[in-house]
Design a protein around this nucleic acid. Structure first.
Length: 555
RNA sequence: GCGUCAGUAGCUCAGCUGGAUAGAGCAACGGCCUUCUAAGCCGUAGGUCAUGGGUUCGAAUCCCCUCUGGCGCACCA
């Protein structure tokens, strides 16, 4: 019970019990007590943990917040805790000062749990499906997919550490209009091998990868598709192109350290009748109608501005219909408690209507959370790199990883909150210097391992209370935040917390390193410090593993 | 036009869902290596939290107006 997360929860419970007791004794506390939350005061003179509940209650009760705080403190049962001092301060904060023993106790926990330290469990097991990247298989993965991949994969790892049963999923859009367009583009490029005058479809895919695929087919199968029907040619080339593109995507993602549990094919929704099923569900609820030959979803009945087409007049389902069926499959058929999607911000208009369609189908919309990420600008030589998918000149994930290490890419894509625009500076990512935050964190780990190689431990036990230096205590304190950080990252769907935490922890270690010598003359202190840095190594490595960044032993 | 996300130090970003004196990194300036990795550490300087109002014990944080920027408003995905 000595991690920050546990101690804060314990104090919340004690405060709640105190208030309940006071209420039972006839004190005029309101029925709707606000949810009690802890804070960490900026200045240590205000203690280690602080509550503002008295100030929140003051208005409801019409009493002085400091008086309320005093009353609450008197009934708090703190005998079996690390609290050594309570105080009412300022306008009515209740401040708690904690015994350093909590740090030493937690150090023991870290050392015994090592690579499992920081994992928490939920009261009840919950399952979560994290879907990310889900790029069209009509071309290679680009730089935006790289950000989505880093965010989604890290988010999934965070949920795993927070105690959820996690499934990583890629939604493969292997059906629909863009696949037809893909096939027509391939067919044109294929025929152009024999007759360069053959026209290219107006809105076809211009990328060079399409030409490569067409030529690849020609090399393998020659002119076998020249004299067949158009449908047969397109169909064959689609199957050929998809198979190659999908296996290339898998290869590039694996290089990027992303392994999916499920590759969900959109075509399965069409072939398996799942789209028909969902339309039946919506129709049974009276939420569809027919107009101009199309079947519509009555979205205006569900807080949307306009109705949406589900089945086009030509009988082909829209992307929207497929997406409803897909999420119905996730949340109803496969029964995940939560579905999290990482989408580009350009899809934000789609979020609300999808949630509303799910609600119409009887699924609580809160079970679907969409993390919208802003797009990436790539900077090189101080200049923005133009990204145009249309012209086929986009930077691919594979190109990126040829220049930048996976470690740097995955770390940097998680430095900013997903909601903010990210400038990815190629020069900085390549640079091996103090400006590159990845190296800063990795360097801390390598330094630790270097010390552990050169200074040997001679005792099985040691006395952590010998650790009294400010930097020593600050380092342990930062380690005890680990599980709290994971839980906050999970709560906020924000993987960028982990890079910030890694950086802060590395800073605490570097400060300690410069202020204190591990290999010091006093044997007891040396043992304690060896254990200290060993524990720090575990936490650093775990943090980096959530980000799927290597923790090197040497640099 | 409507919706949406954002605007915090010269630059890139935090700010723990309303708390106490707004914080980091880079850039600038000044220090620290004959002992465990200087890819490091310590310090100085840098702010009208876009603007104006509102809510209250208390606002960078919540609400409204305005300004600026990104994105979206298809029988595309």
């Amino acid at each position: 019970m000595s991690s920050k997360l546990e101690i804060e929860q314990q104090i919340i419970n004690i405060a709640e019990e105190s208030i309940a007791l006071l209420k039972a004794q006839g004190e005029p506390f309101p029925d709707d007590i606000p949810i009690i939350q802890t804070e960490v005061p900026r200045d240590e003179k205000y203690g280690h943990i602080s509550l503002n509940i008295a100030m929140q209650l003051a208005k409801k009760m019409g009493r002085n917040p400091r008086e309320i705080a005093e009353t609450i403190i008197q009934k708090m049962e703190l005998s079996n805790t690390y609290v050594i001092k309570t105080e009412v301060a300022g306008p009515g904060f209740i401040n708690f000062t904690l015994d350093n023993k909590r740090l030493f106790d937690e150090l023991e926990v870290i050392l015994s749990e090592n690579s499992n330290y920081g994992k928490t469990n939920l009261d009840q097991p919950k399952s979560i499906n994290v879907e990310f990247v889900s790029a069209n298989p009509t071309g290679p993965l680009h730089i935006g997919n790289a950000r989505g991949g880093a965010i989604g994969d890290t988010l999934a790892n965070i949920y795993h550490w927070a105690g959820w049963a996690v499934s990583k999923e890629f939604y493969l859009n292997d059906a629909g209009n863009q696949i037809i367009k893909f096939g027509e583009s391939l067919a044109a490029r294929y025929l152009q091998i024999f007759d360069p005058e053959i026209p290219f479809p107006e809105k076809g895919y211009l990328g060079h990868d399409i030409i490569d695929l067409a030529e690849g087919y020609y090399k393998e199968f020659g002119d076998s598709l020249v004299h067949v029907t158009e449908d047969k040619r397109t169909e064959t080339l689609i199957a050929y192109g998809l198979q190659i593109n999908i296996s290339n995507m898998k290869r590039d993602l694996e290089r990027y350290r992303i392994i999916y549990d499920t590759w969900f094919h959109e075509s399965a929704l069409h072939n398996g009748g799942m789209i028909d099923d969902i339309i039946q569900v919506l129709t049974n609820k009276g939420d569809t109608y027919e107009s101009e030959g199309a079947i519509w979803f009555r979205a205006t009945n569900h807080d949307c501005e306009k109705d949406e087409v589900l089945i086009r007049a030509n009988g082909v389902p829209t992307y929207f219909a497929a997406d409803i069926a897909y999420h119905y499959n996730k949340l109803k058929t496969r029964n995940f408690d939560m579905a999290v999607n990482v989408w580009g911000a350009d899809h934000h208009g789609h979020v609300h209507r999808l949630q509303m369609a799910l609600k119409a189908a009887g699924i609580a919309p809160e079970r679907l959370k969409v993390v919208l990420m802003q797009l990436v600008s790539l900077m090189k030589d101080g200049e923005p790199v133009r990204i145009s998918k249309r012209s086929g000149k986009s930077i691919t994930l594979s190109d990126l990883l040829d220049e930048v290490s996976v470690d740097a890419a995955r770390y940097i894509f998680n430095t900013n909150n997903a909601t903010t625009h990210l400038n990815f500076d190629m020069d900085l990512a390549i640079e091996q210097s103090n400006e590159n935050p990845v190296f800063y964190v990795q360097y801390a780990h390598a330094r630790i391992q270097s010390i552990l190689r050169s200074v040997s431990s001679k005792a099985a036990t040691c006395d952590f209370s010998l650790l009294t230096e400010k930097t020593e205590l600050a380092l342990i304190d930062k380690m005890t935040d680990f599980s709290k950080e994971i839980n906050l990252a999970a709560r906020d769907y924000d993987p960028s917390r982990m890079t910030r935490y890694a950086y802060d922890l590395a800073t605490c270690f570097h400060s300690f390193y410069n202020a204190c010598r591990v290999n010091c003359d006093e044997a007891g202190l040396r043992e304690a410090r060896l254990k200290l840095i060993s524990a720090c190594g575990f936490v650093l490595k775990s943090t980096l593993s959530i980000l799927a960044v290597d923790a090197p032993d040497r640099m």
